[in-house]
Design a binder for these strands. Structure first.
Length: 105
DNA sequence: CTATTGACGACAT
DNA sequence: CATGTCGCCAATA
């Protein structure tokens, strides 16, 4: 079924995000770049915010380019908890070993 | 059409 | 390191 109330852009963002393996993270910028809109990192964040997609899409694995958590529709605290649960350590609002677990498309 | 708003990024001060 | 400003893009009013 479709019942997609999402735009092509939002769809693309979610699809790409689903490709991120567990235990790794990506960035808004990289994600935007992967869908062909290298300067649309803000729009990417906007798309994720509007789509409280459940576990279908690991929205929590998207962080800022400098390794900081960024934001989350359910609250940053929640985002951090989800990340830790997924084996990703977060310290002082920033992903530990960010450079090592950073997933590039 | 224009204006406003953001889970951003890079740079200047 | 902290704060401010500008640029960028898509969605929405």
């Amino acid at each position: 079924m479709r019942t997609i109330s999402l735009t092509e852009f939002e769809e693309a963002v979610l699809e790409m995000l689903k490709q991120v393996p567990a235990g790794q993270v990506t960035t808004y910028s990289e994600l935007a770049r992967a869908i062909g809109r290298p300067r649309a990192m803000r729009a990417v964040g906007n798309a994720l915010n509007k789509n409280p997609n459940a576990p279908k899409v690991p929205c929590q694995r998207v962080v800022k380019s400098d390794g900081y958590i960024g934001g989350f529709a359910g609250g940053v605290k929640k985002k951090i908890e989800l990340l830790r649960r997924g084996g990703i350590e977060v310290k002082n609002g920033k992903v530990v070993n960010f450079n090592e677990i950073f997933y590039q498309f």
